[in-house]
Design a protein around this nucleic acid. Structure first.
Lengths: 328, 328
DNA sequence: CTGAAAGCGCTTACAG
DNA sequence: CTGAAAGCGCTTACAG
């Protein structure tokens, strides 16, 4: 098997403790001995066994990430940011995906515990107090991806309720009084609610009402068609569509274009995130940029702070920006 | 800290060995004792410490993935496929990224060894015999992402030299005798060659010559402009551009469109991969589909087969498809 | 059916 | 400056 400290020790005619001391930079080693050990270790290709070290130290320097799907651009960008920040602070990252399967999520979290990760970052599909109790019983440190997503837990994310209110005012300031919020079904096939989308939808409603806007909500799996109907029937003011994601905004833009409606001539368009945008050099849709990389960096810092026993706020808000584009 | 087998044993008034036997499904435990142990373990939230197990078993059931950048769609798709296949075979995955930094790649590989991964999947930026020697000295199992990328190593990928020849014939069969290969600089800033692109370029040249095509190669950072010039000066036959990636093909298509040239009216267009395509519902560019998910599945299987001491071929070719689109 | 012993590779006191 | 001892949580023989 692999070369161990013991092998190096034998090759040098000293004890493994001395080898360890030399390698760890401890001062109490005779310079010549140290030299010899370092040289031999190098020669023999000695790499310390980190899991043995974990076992005795009680810390693994590993962070577990349990998310739904890494092919999703949102997550690949977050995982990238987490990986970088974790490495910068001396941690390695293990990622696994549960495809929004509640049972699988629990299995993976237990597995992460089994591997003794020092902390976990969760994009949890399980919800509510029962899950929270189950999680706490594991006695692990964890941070939830998503602002205030799980009660009484450490969370990191954008305050969706607040940001959408900014958007309403932003659009109003751009002269749009007729505002249409476009959102896919809030409830999944399993009957569970999509909390971030719900936070946006309810915030939109509150603020649009408050601002005296003529507001509407398009909801469901056929929002493209609904939007087209809306434009056809619309009289008077030009409306703006606020889509809850690029996955909806971009196809909608194409669909409407095919049917003779163009932004910003016939309607305004705004979306969330600019993840796909980086692949193209075309006109930008106005967007709420949630700075996904910052979310990743923040959540990595949060969980590492927890691990290192630093105090952090319960719910960390990551800032967002409203970005102009050519679609308003 | 966490609940150990010892804790469960004490709670049940038996030895930890008995606990272990009950939990591992060993038959030699009195049914009542087993019942009691299973119940207590469940109650106490016992999760076996997998790194302690790794230490004694000499295998961690972890696979290390060392790649350049997970934000790259190619890699996020591969990592996704690897993760799924690895889980299906009982392995967990640790991923880290080196941003094409040769030193960092070596550090990460050593770190993976330190964490006792049973095998590694590498998208290596280091090349050549010296690296190969260094790698082998670590005495780890590894598979390289990229067909025949590192000599005398297990590799998995598409046979680029072969596939591009198919493409040349495919385009010829579509009536294109004037073929233009579009490739970014083959040498990076660091002077190292991009082997897959080189394999494609040289295969293209060989086959185009053999087929008696009127062939050209556009090469560099301004291939959009070069393509436009080419079309402007072009007389006679309609050419086809074969781009080495969507990152080049899609912007080129847009650029040419802006300048009044459209595919397939004024030119033909073919590209590699359909990774971005899944985000859109627009017309498809004809493409060599490398089935990136299959590459991921294959490379996961390859490394796990190695770990489990099964025989596998040195270089595994993953099949590709030539996909029709609306651009030819 | 059950347990005491040895060991995986390391670290952390403690003794010389 | 150097080493023997104990222990992290588990598993694998071996003994009763």
């Amino acid at each position: 098997m692999a070369v161990t400290a013991k092998d190096v020790a034998e090759a040098c005619g000293v004890s493994r403790i001395t080898v360890n001391r030399a390698l760890s930079g401890n001062e109490n080693v005779k310079p010549e001995t140290r030299e010899k050990i370092l040289k031999k270790a190098q020669e023999m290709g000695y790499v310390p066994n980190l899991i043995a070290r974990s076992l005795v130290n009680g810390k693994s320097k590993m962070i577990g990430i349990v998310i739904s799907d890494i092919k999703n651009l949102y997550f690949s960008e977050i995982v990238d940011a987490i990986t970088r920040q974790a490495r910068a602070r001396g941690y390695m990252v293990c990622t696994c995906t549960h495809d929004s399967d509640c049972q699988e999520e629990k299995r993976l979290i237990e597995m992460m515990k089994g591997y003794c990760v020092d902390g976990m970052i969760l994009n949890c599909v399980n919800r509510g107090g029962e899950f929270k109790d189950w999680l706490d019983k594991l006695n692990m440190k964890y941070v939830i991806l998503g602002y205030q997503l799980l009660p009484e837990s450490y969370t990191v994310g954008v305050n969706e309720n607040k940001s959408v209110k900014d958007v309403v005012r932003f659009l109003k300031a751009h002269g749009y009084n007729k505002q249409v919020f476009v959102v896919p079904p809030l409830y999944g096939e399993d009957g569970r609610i999509n909390i971030p989308h719900y936070q946006r939808a309810s915030g939109f409603q509150e603020e649009a009402k408050k601002q005296g806007c003529d507001y509407h909500i398009l909801y469901g799996n056929d929002t493209n068609e609904q939007a087209l109907e809306f434009l056809k029937k619309n009289t008077g003011e030009k409306p703006v569509f606020l889509c809850t994601g690029e996955m909806f905004a971009i196809p909608m833009q194409k669909f409407l274009k095919k049917n003779g409606y163009r932004a910003p001539k016939d309607y305004g368009l705004m979306t969330y995130d600019r993840l796909m945008y980086r692949f193209w050099n075309e006109e930008a849709i106005a967007a709420v940029d949630n700075h996904v990389d910052q979310i990743g960096t923040s959540v990595a810092n949060a969980v590492i702070d927890l691990i290192e026993e630093k105090e952090i706020p319960m719910n960390i808000e990551v800032p967002y920006d409203l970005e102009e584009g050519t679609s308003l």
